[in-house]
Amino acid sequence: MSITVRVLLLIGALSSFVYVFLNIRKSKMKAEEAFFWIGTAGLLVVLSVFPGFATWLSWVIGIESPANLVFLVVIFLLVMKIFLLDRKLAAMRHQMTELIQNTAIRETREKQGKPEQK
């Protein structure tokens, strides 16, 4: 890898790490929710500081190009992230539906002068 690419990579990785970190400090995200992003940003930093790591690992696993290994790992992480987001979205939709239903049912019951249940 040329020195230019390494420097660019390092700058990119460090700035994304700092960006994630700042967001957590400003409480834009809960710490446990940001764990994934801290981990990902940290991984990028490690890979850019020690490019030998990716080369060594791809050699161990038997992948010809270290770049392919990095792509593979990143794509896997992203797919998992999308799945988890989708799951969360479904859960939130369910919560919202329940909230709307409960509000409407309670309103009806109040209008009929019935005591609250549960």
């Binding site: 919202m96 539906t97 709307i100 239903q101 509000t103 409407a104 049912i105 309103e107 009806t108 249940q117 549960k118």
Partner: peptide
């Protein structure tokens, strides 16, 4: 009347009725 303020679709609306009937 049970008045859902947000459109939930047929499933959500019917579910509301079922919930009410059960309760």
């Amino acid at each position: 009347l049970i008045d859902l303020r947000v459109n939930l679709g047929l499933t959500g609306a019917l579910q509301t009725g079922m919930r009410y009937a059960w309760e």
